[in-house]
Design a protein around this nucleic acid. Structure first.
Lengths: 140, 140
DNA sequence: TTTGCTAATGAAAATCATTTTCAATAAGTA
DNA sequence: TACTTATTGAAAATGATTTTCATTAGCAAA
């Protein structure tokens, strides 16, 4: 997914294309790890000094609404965002460098059905996230 | 797990048993759904008027540290706590009433190993959470 | 092009959750 | 019972996020 596609998506949904939005989109889209609003602000401001933090919050909000980015939940906090994978994807986070990898939702169906039977719940969604060390960070 | 056991755990770890702690423990332990600090405060204060919100925060912090409660991550926020299950457990949340059910981590090993192979990550932890409607809330 | 409407902006203020500070109190041991 | 010190609640401080508002700029229509 490229920055252009994100901008097109914004435009098609009635949002105007501004310099501030272009910079925020580019920053988030480029990053291999999840970024908090402040981090986006700090990085983006290197290229666009006038950018306001409020605009970062507002742009992230819109990108999330369009499912172009997703919030990443971690033990230390849940304010960071990463580019959303296409389709139903799960996250794999490197605990050392923060790099995020995506993987397919594969088969949780069997587990889900068994849990539904045991608990009486009607299950409609699941969150799965793995933590570990990426190929670069793990010990040899 | 009963409130008494939690209090014993606190005591054994060098913490004093106070009325404030007893009330907070009882409130969280009794609840079938995850409660935020403010919710704990509001409920607990009905029985113990003098309770301070700060004490709620501090008590929850200690209970989490002793793994007696755990934080629950949800789309709308991640500040709520629920009594922790014993051993490695996952959560199943009712999207209507908020009730929380626990289930065993069962076998994610196969999936985990396959993902590790594909991505090159060394995987050490996983988070799995299911959402749905509990037996009482689901349509007939 | 140029114009005009209005969405979008950034700064400052407001809000909300959480943490820190501090003097008074009370738990639990000696 | 007395003493030590962890714990308390109130108030202040902090930090993240949201709201307000006057100004600016995107972009559709002329």
């Amino acid at each position: 997914m490229s920055a252009e596609i994100w901008l097109t998506q914004l435009h098609e949904n009635g949002y105007r294309l501004t310099d501030a939005r272009r910079i925020v989109v580019e920053t988030v889209e480029k990053s291999a790890r999840a970024l908090t609003p402040i981090e986006v602000y700090d990085i983006a401001r290197k290229k666009y000094r006038a950018l306001g933090l409020v605009t970062v919050y507002r742009t992230l909000e819109k990108l999330e609404e369009l499912h172009l980015i997703q919030r990443v939940h971690q033990p230390l906090g849940c304010q960071a965002f990463i580019s959303a994978g296409e389709g139903h994807q799960h996250l794999l986070l490197c605990q050392n460098c923060g790099q995020v990898a995506f993987f397919e939702g594969d088969d949780l169906d069997v587990l889900t059905k068994s849990i539904a039977k045991k608990t009486g719940y009607q299950i409609s969604e699941h969150w799965l996230q793995l933590f570990g060390l990426c190929a670069d960070c793990r010990p040899i």
